[in-house]
């Protein structure tokens, strides 16, 4: 489904990704862990098409199509969804208007008929239940004045409504209380269960989330490279031992970059 090959990328002359290889097949859940500043969000941003990065080598394909030459909106319409580490506030547009536009843009791209107001309402009523999002949040401007947790929940609500093929969750668990964590994880699982084809990439620092969203693979991203891959046991080991042993294994003095 998603293939990242030998990807090098830099920002303002600074090399951040230094040869990433990653293959995600339909139906798989991949977790990406790694210390702060190792390049996790950068990788997610490049997949989603944020401007400002220069890819100096390598390729990214999605269902055989070259992603890097696509506009960010087309990547979204193709079925890539990024739950942001820091969801932005957008004044002026209500969540409702925003989501209705997004749903219909994606439907148009797929050659489906646009939803009218009634059909759209029915859709969101159903999805609202999954993440327990409050009706009042829905009529407010996008993320505007939302608490940290509400913003994260809103990301998962959008995931449920937009129903992509691949969901990339960038630290969606950070800042959530224990109940909210369960709700969010459940939202992701409901999304996954809709079809055998849905794939998820979870970026997280905490093993806890992986108790709820069980990964098939765990990767450690360090200093712009995936330096270790394993199964869910790797996450447990990281929780216990930290990253120093990984740094050592990679012949890099511990505690420096």
């Amino acid at each position: 489904m998603l293939t990242v090959k030998d990807l090098y990328a830099s920002v303002e002359e600074k090399e951040i990704l230094k040869g990433i290889n990653l293959k995600v097949n339909p139906g798989e859940v991949h977790a990406i862990m790694g210390p702060n500043g190792s390049g996790k969000s950068t990788l997610a941003s490049i997949i989603a098409g944020r401007e400002g990065y220069s890819v100096t080598n390598g390729s990214v394909t999605f269902e055989g199509k070259d992603l890097l030459s696509m506009s960010p909106e087309d990547r979204a319409r193709e079925g890539i969804f990024l739950a942001f580490q820091y969801p932005v506030e957008i004044p002026g547009i209500s969540n409702a208007t925003f989501l209705k536009t997004a749903v219909n843009e994606i439907r148009k791209y797929k050659g489906l008929e646009e939803l009218d107001a009634m059909e759209f309402l029915a859709l969101i009523r159903e999805k609202m239940k999954i993440v327990g999002i409050d009706q009042t949040l829905f009529s407010r401007p996008v993320n505007h004045g939302f608490s940290g947790g509400e913003k994260k929940r809103n990301e998962i609500f959008q995931l449920a409504v937009l129903d992509p093929k691949l969901a990339i969750l960038d630290e969606t668990d950070s800042g959530l209380d224990i109940d909210a964590l369960k709700i969010v994880a459940n939202g992701v699982n409901v999304f996954k269960q809709q079809s055998k084809e849905k794939a998820v990439i979870v970026v997280t620092h905490y093993q806890r989330l992986l108790d709820y969203i069980v990964p098939d693979y765990v990767h450690v991203l360090y200093n712009g490279r995936i330096v270790k891959s394993g199964t869910k046991e790797l996450a447990l080991e990281l929780e216990e031992r930290g990253y120093d042993w990984i740094k050592e294994e990679n012949n890099i003095p511990a505690s420096t970059k």
């Binding site: 909106e73 990024l82 942001f84 969801p87 932005v88 004044p91 002026g92 208007t97 791209y109 401007p141």
Partner: peptide
Amino acid sequence: SKIGEDQIFYLNQRGIKTEDAVNLIVNGY
């Protein structure tokens, strides 16, 4: 309020192209 690249990218990532994103924000506002 400021609309910058971050807001526009957020809307792009939900399938909305830049021109429509700006219109949406401005008309709502």
